[in-house]
Design a protein around this nucleic acid. Structure first.
Lengths: 341, 341
DNA sequence: TACTTTTGTTCCAACGTTTGAACAAATATA
DNA sequence: TATATTTGTTCAAACGTTGGAACAAAAGTA
């Protein structure tokens, strides 16, 4: 039917013979308005099916109550779970969440930022695309004085709040585990080292090897986009090496799955010939054959902290000083692909 | 730095010694404004780093240029791919997209709708939660005269635009294929029949069996939530049947994967003992062992049509009459799990 | 009773933009 | 030259809400 005319605060005022501003105050529970009036206003509002005009409020107050989120792709258990939690926390506080995907593309990411700024979001929570190196667009956000919180894929140079797991330590946990399972030579299929998290994982890989007196070998470390196809391609190279490694640590479950496929196709026994550990604890890692050991990234916790950090920033914007770098512990979920004993 | 003061149309006007309204018209390329003035305005706007206040425009024009999208969960290849396309089409037309997840919960879905209405979106594109039976909240959208487009999970009673694949025919294609592979008795693990798409798939399953003169057996059809765990649970029941079926058609790849696991755990050979077909063509269906045959749902096309339908509705709102029910053909991707010959 | 305080409301300007009407100046038409 | 048209701009109101100042009435205090 389309009950065309939306009712406004003015309509309510007319019904009751009071002014719009009294109605506004009544609705906002202003202390100076009598209980009687408040009750009446609420009643009439109900009757008229009144819905506050959010846009008018936003204009008047100078804030939209919208928070923008940028993720590389929604199609990932980690990100969709982070978002779910962000929504949960922010909705409770009256914020709405605009989710955008960058598809790992710098260009798309820039467009997303522009769109979010255009929409006048009150803040942005983002995880950077793999491709992103230039920080100009992110700096634009900062310059506008809009709270920016990064998670997972951060960037130290930006100097903003950050939430993520301890990537360096994650690598240690993984390598410790593989060594314990008897692996002598461990390869690493990692992300590009210009991204902070992958750089840290690579560093952790190095240092953990050193710690265990394992030699570092140049041809056992690879950087890629970590898609399933990348895992396949690199694994093909690895099995053609004169002497193969006996353990592989992959920075993504998708790439790990690709690697696993190739190994199966070549009758390499996992974990006996080569033990495999992935990253991200995607649902499929538990159900592939063999199930893939993987690092759990604390998505819920990350989402919660990111949202709460935003709320903190918005509530006292003056306190520009103390940045929050929140680094959580990761957890290795050991499954068949790396369990030899 | 936080360059605090945002510049407005008024600032530009002051610099040039003209009125704000002239500036507004210049920026909107009004025919009555001289080229000279337009040029000057653009120049000054550039210098002052002017960004139009979207909220003010929205208030004045009575539209927010925001479109809400509700999906059951982002963590699915189908949905994230639909969204990507919706974004692509709508962004081009100056709309921003707010994505919300219902997590298959009716309650969350209602909250999402409330939030979107509160934000004054110009339209809503949604796929209903499995749980949803009551349509009160969706009717609220309609009553407000806000364009509503459903996709995939629709509902005939709502009488709104819809885009989805031909679920009824999909079942025919699947059953035709399984029969051709020599299956004599085919089970179906489906969604709940109160959801239109699942009802249609079940109907298709029935009719296709009849077409091939296959008997229908009561204990070969199951309704569930189609999660991986549901697939497992039901498969366990199936393998305990006095005589097992030799083909299984599952309405979701997740549930199909669960079923596959159970079969492997029980040394049932797939496809030789039991042939398996899933639904949704999730990435993992191609990489599980064996790879799962699956129905491809045309996510890109669906997203595109949904977005374009919204644009059509918004451009001529009077034309309330002719609903658009767009039913696309699905395609069966045949993989190892059902290929006997 | 006269004065201060409190209570409940109205008044009014503001947020930044848009848009039709009004108007003056320039140009075209008779 | 007088009149009609076109061009480029200004004016003013509007979108719906908010919130401080102003104000009258009621209540409290001396």
């Amino acid at each position: 039917m389309g009950n065309k005319k939306k009712s406004t605060i003015k309509d309510i005022a007319n019904v009751l013979g009071i002014t719009p501003s009294a109605v506004s105050k009544a609705l906002n529970n202003h202390p100076r308005i009598s209980k009687k009036t408040k009750k009446a206003v609420l009643q009439v509002a109900e009757n008229l099916n009144y819905q506050p005009n959010h846009i008018a409020t936003a204009l008047r107050k100078g804030k939209s109550n919208l928070v923008g989120v940028i993720i590389p792709r929604a199609n990932s258990n980690f990100f969709s779970s982070v978002i779910e939690k962000i929504e949960e926390v922010l909705n409770k506080k009256g914020y709405n969440v605009i989710i955008t995907q960058s598809n790992e593309s710098y260009e798309k990411e820039c467009k997303n930022i522009e769109a979010l700024l255009f929409t006048q979001v009150d803040g942005i929570i983002a995880s950077m695309a793999n491709e992103t190196v230039k920080l100009d667009y992110y700096n634009k956000i900062k310059q506008k004085g809009i709270p920016l919180i990064l998670f997972d894929r951060g960037e130290n140079d930006l100097n903003v709040d950050y939430v993520g797991i301890d990537d360096y330590m994650s690598s240690h946990i993984v390598i410790d585990h593989l060594v314990e399972q008897g692996c002598k030579r461990i390869a690493h299929i990692g992300g590009f080292s210009h991204t902070r998290i992958y750089k840290n994982r690579i560093r952790g890989y190095f240092d953990a090897l050193k710690k265990h007196n394992r030699p570092f070998e140049d041809n056992l470390i690879y950087e890629c986009n970590l898609r399933q196809s990348d895992g396949r391609d690199i694994m093909k190279k690895i099995i053609n090496l004169p002497d193969r490694p006996d353990g592989i640590y992959v920075s993504s479950d998708y790439a790990a799955l690709g690697a696993l496929e190739v190994m199966k196709e070549n009758n390499i026994r996992v974990p006996d010939d080569i033990a495999l550990v992935g990253f991200g604890n995607e649902p499929f890692s538990a159900i592939s054959t063999p199930a893939i050991s993987s690092v759990e990234q604390q998505s819920k916790k990350i989402g919660e902290l990111a949202a709460k950090t935003f709320l903190k920033r918005i509530s006292n914007p003056k306190e520009k000083v103390s940045l929050n770098k929140m680094i959580l512990d990761a957890e290795l979920i050991v499954r068949t692909s790396s369990k030899r004993k």
